[in-house]
Nucleic acid binder design. Sequence first.
DNA 1: CACTGCGATGTCATCTAGTGACATCGCATA
DNA 2: TATGCGATGTCACTAGATGACATCGCAGTG
Lengths: 193, 193
Amino acid sequence: MGRWEPGAEGRLRDAAMQLYIEHGFDQTTVADIAERAGVTGRTFFRYFADKREVLFAGAAELERRVIDALETAPRAVAPLDAVAIAIGAVGDMIGAHREFSRQRQAVIEATPELQERELIKLAALSVALADGLRRRGLSTTEAKLVAETGVAVFRAAFEQWLTASRDRGLARVIRESFARLRALAASSSGSVS
Amino acid sequence: MGRWEPGAEGRLRDAAMQLYIEHGFDQTTVADIAERAGVTGRTFFRYFADKREVLFAGAAELERRVIDALETAPRAVAPLDAVAIAIGAVGDMIGAHREFSRQRQAVIEATPELQERELIKLAALSVALADGLRRRGLSTTEAKLVAETGVAVFRAAFEQWLTASRDRGLARVIRESFARLRALAASSSGSVS
DNA sequence: CACTGCGATGTCATCTAGTGACATCGCATA
DNA sequence: TATGCGATGTCACTAGATGACATCGCAGTG
């Protein structure tokens, strides 16, 4: 390796997280993070595209797992159920770390900039899901509709899981949310002027 | 008014739009926009919080109308139908300007930064919808779920409307999308492992 | 063992977004 | 005529982001 302490990326990630929690995202400069990590500011941008990306580096891995789960689901499964299975994979990945998720979410919710980044990651997930659904034979428009709906359910479920007083299990909350959506759709008549 | 040409805001908006289309969002600097509008860079930031906001200034008005429509809907209407009505109000507002919408959307889709901003505006709309639904008696979690789902349907419908070869009418595409969601939910068994 | 390629980092310069503080002009109204 | 106020200009500055180039030292290679 190089001539310096190895693990610069990990140190940067830890330093950033700490500082974001301690002083807030806006009050933390890249120079601060770099200093605490023992590197130069320039090096920060070699590992992370921007200041926000530190908090979302895991999103790619998550998306991969979701799509894997979708590919694995039997073709006979109805579209919305297939998406439910795929989204359920998220539960297995982060469902075990509610405290960490809460802390991370607290930082994100305090900063519009970070919310934007989170939203676009979910949008990317939706696009990937729509792709997967099209490979299962859905039309483009239906695939998009189902994917967006699936992500919408995830959003609602994730928030519910995080804000509940006790940990009811993310995977379970996701399942229940999909069930509730079915019920709501069933009680909808479609009688729109 | 002041001692200069009136209508600075409008000139800035037009100049920005033109430049974003001509050279792209990234290649356009605030100084460029201000120069074309005949004002100083500093003045740009007096009208728009940041470079992106130019394209989203109308979002507040749109949100207002959606919420109005939701409030107006009869209380007896099922939640998902109420949201369908509310979202339908968007159709009446921008459904008549497909060409403008397409141009604007082309700019947005070419730039992740702008997509982020668009997403957070829709997220704000979702929050407002959830509020309105809670006022109609829904629980917090159900309100959130229905609101997110409604916005998801809008996303899919809007894209379908924009990309279709001919203008089928935004309001109509929205209605059809809600109907399709009901069908998809009905054909979903919920048999998730 | 000396040489060399290469990866990781530092250093420096620069651009641009965004913000605060204060000056300036001129219309409207007293 | 005097004055207050709204809209804009001017100036200075912080910080995020990026490009170009230098530097160090490990891993091989002959």
